[in-house]
């Protein structure tokens, strides 16, 4: 099964006529993803690539194509509005790739989404990939910016706050021959739509996922919250890596959420807490696959 998205999921891209959105929409099409529509206000009626229709609003795109999932590539000043537009159109899933959305905007979006049936992943994330079974994992559902070829359809669920570290974990599990069920980048911002814990619960319920890699970083307590739940409720082996052991306190390390602010949110404290929960800890980023193998036994 995989989680969140399947090979046949109908995807629309908000911001498809921009350079960034367009490039990755085309890469998703090349990967074999079912990208059925694009949305750019004021460019309705145009065609993207060979045959993808562009609409003015998400509501029109959904009515015409039956898309259920959106990828948001809209620039930061307009991204909060774009997310809310997807929620209003009743999408199942909105994946916000955009980096640099003001925290106050996301705070309002999250409050405004309460009670809606839409799930938000991100923002500031690499997206979601359910690999396909073709050459270089083609034929899968690629939403976002991950390089497609590093994936392989398989049994490991990957959840991460960082884009490029997700690629590391994916590449290592591909080289080990394990492959991935679904890879989810939940994003590096302090306020995001979906947590490590939310995704861990989905992996636990997904029969195709046999083991899990959880990647976190300094700041906040989301990884430990997920670890505590897993200790009681998750039957699948888990490996974890926490980035930022060498980060100086009080400095924002690129991601808006990556800042050590107390004493409980350092990399060392998180690794210790996760180890106590029975999770296999990768000491270096190149040991994520190794730590998973130790967890599987």
């Amino acid at each position: 099964m995989a989680i969140l998205v399947q090979e046949d999921t109908k995807v629309l891209v908000q911001g498809i006529t921009g350079g960034f959105g367009g490039k990755h929409a085309q890469l998703s099409l090349d990967y074999g993803t079912n990208v059925v529509a694009g949305v750019t206000p004021g460019k309705g009626g145009q065609t993207f690539g060979s045959s993808t229709p562009v609409y003015d609003t998400v509501a029109e795109a959904v009515a015409e194509t039956g898309a259920t999932v959106s990828a948001v590539f809209v620039p930061p000043p307009f991204a909060a509005d774009a997310i809310l537009e997807g929620v209003d159109a009743g999408l199942d899933l909105v994946v916000a790739i955009t980096e640099g959305i003001p925290v106050a905007d996301m705070m309002r979006v999250k409050a405004g989404m309460k009670g809606s049936s839409t799930r938000l992943i991100g923002p500031n994330c690499p997206g979601v990939v359910t690999p396909g079974t073709g050459t270089d994992s083609n034929g899968g559902c690629r939403i976002g910016i991950s390089p497609g070829y590093i994936h392989k359809r398989g049994s490991v669920g990957v959840v991460s706050r960082s884009g490029t570290l997700t690629y590391e974990a994916v590449w290592q599990t591909t080289q080990l021959g394990l492959g991935q069920s679904t890879c989810v980048g939940i994003g590096g911002d302090p306020i995001n739509g979906t947590s490590h814990l939310d995704i861990l619960k989905m992996f636990q319920d997904d029969p195709e996922t046999e083991s899990i890699i959880l990647i976190g970083e300094i700041g906040g307590n989301a990884e430990v919250e997920a670890g505590r739940w897993a200790q009681e409720n998750c039957t699948k082996p888990i490996a974890a890596f926490i980035a930022g052991a060498t980060a100086p306190p009080g400095r924002r390390m690129g991601h808006a959420g990556a800042i050590v602010s107390g004493g409980d949110d350092t990399a060392q404290a998180k690794k210790a807490a996760l180890a106590e929960c029975g999770i296999s800890i990768a000491e270096t980023p190149s040991d994520m696959g190794g730590a998973l193998k130790r967890a599987i036994g």
Binding site: I145, S162, G188, G244, A245, M253, G254, A258, P285
Partner: peptide, 28 residues
Amino acid sequence: NGAGLAMATMDIIKHYGGDPANFLDVGG
């Protein structure tokens, strides 16, 4: 490239006994 990988790169330099001079994420 990437903030998470940039942090992790500093970490692994330290792990092998080196000392990072900086954090630098050139972005996507």
